[in-house]
Simulated assay, not measured.
Amino acid sequence: MPSMNRKSNGRRLADSDDEPMNGSDDDRDQQGDITDRILAKVDPEYLNTAIDLRQGDAALRKLIGALGSLRKEVKDVENTLSNVASEMAEMLSDELVDEEYNEDATLERLQAHSTMKELEKDFLATLDRAKEISIKSGTISDMRQRLTQGHQLTNIYQMYEKKVQEPLEKERTKTARQKYMKDCPSYEGYRQIVWENLTSNQAVPSIKRFLPRQDGDEESDDEEIEFGAQTSNFQCPITLGVLEDPYKSTVCPHAFSGAAIKEIIQQEKGSTRCPVAGCSKTITLATIEPDEQLARRVAAHVKRQKEGRTQASTQARTYTRMELSDEDGDDDDEDDAETQAARKIKKEVKKEKAAAAGQ
């Protein structure tokens, strides 16, 4: 076993800490240079000594715990930005959305608004930070697993840097669509709640429209259809009322009121077929989980309803200003649902005006 003077090594590390460090600690390259200078002062025999199993496992668990705490803080920032953006969108509704709703014009104004641009930029930065923490935490977990399996680990810092470098670099070279278009529920929830608050629950445009195409992205008509505009439905398929404490299924794209789906699962002795008509997936307590993003969207929807800012009320105000000729002469069966609704509202408004005039 190589001889080591641990006190000498400690003094050398302490001496290196006294050296001046130019620049910011946030600068990755410079911080890496500083670390390399420190490690260069450590005896190679010390670095290459196998890590003690018990001490090493405890140290790695501590690192994983610290990264977990940091991940929670980043998630809190993510939630705060989402809430601020949705409230800001509500305030900007009259400014950015015409009375006769136009998706293209609304999206263009939203993306050009300086405050909304900055909020989305900051939100995406938190998603990048969360992904970075996840990669680092996963790398340390893998090293800990190898250690507990009896593998001898030496020069642990360089091993960590080597293992984490490739996935981090790969993540940094991805385009926005590659990062956020698929398998990113946080961004999906963000754009949904912002758009719904801005437009009083109009259908959310394709995610591609929020993320400009970059070099490396592929265009596909099939993908455009798959990710087209979607109208939100906040009704629980079990209670038929507004979702309460929503839980989402991890085996199908459906959500339910938490108490209702849990009760059904318990009544069916631990598993049940998805309550949504046409869905054959089996639901258990292990395949449902709380959906915080959906809960925020439901709360915003309920608030809009109380304030009379739902899509139906917006359409109604627009229809009352429409001049509809030949109300009774056309065949209603040939009209679409919106036109029929407009005619009905128009008639009711005229009746109310006539009744008021008669008084």
Rank of each mutant, 00 (worst) to 15 (best):
D215I: 07
I64D: 00
L70A: 10
A125E: 13
L47G: 03
D217T: 02
A85Q: 03
D336K: 06
D142F: 10
R172Q: 12
R146D: 10
R296M: 06
Q214M: 07
I64P: 01
T250P: 01
Q214F: 06
R28S: 10
E171Y: 14
T339P: 03
S93Y: 05
K208V: 06
K303A: 09
M143A: 06
R296V: 03
E118F: 07
M1F: 14
R297Q: 09
E108W: 01
Y247P: 05
N5G: 05
E292A: 09
D122G: 04
P20D: 08
I34D: 06
V251N: 01
T173K: 10
G278D: 05
P2W: 07
I135S: 01
D76N: 07
D26M: 12
I133V: 08
E103S: 08
R296K: 11
L147H: 00
T49E: 10
T199V: 03
S280D: 13
K170I: 10
E99Y: 09
E19H: 11
N79S: 15
S24N: 12
L60I: 02
R321W: 05
S200E: 07
Q202G: 07
E90T: 10
D18I: 09
D98W: 09
L127V: 02
R11M: 11
D335H: 12
R172I: 03
S313Y: 11
D328C: 09
N48S: 11
R172H: 05
E289V: 14
P246R: 04
R177F: 00
G228A: 14
S141E: 07
A125V: 01
T148Q: 12
E45H: 13
Q202I: 08
K344I: 01
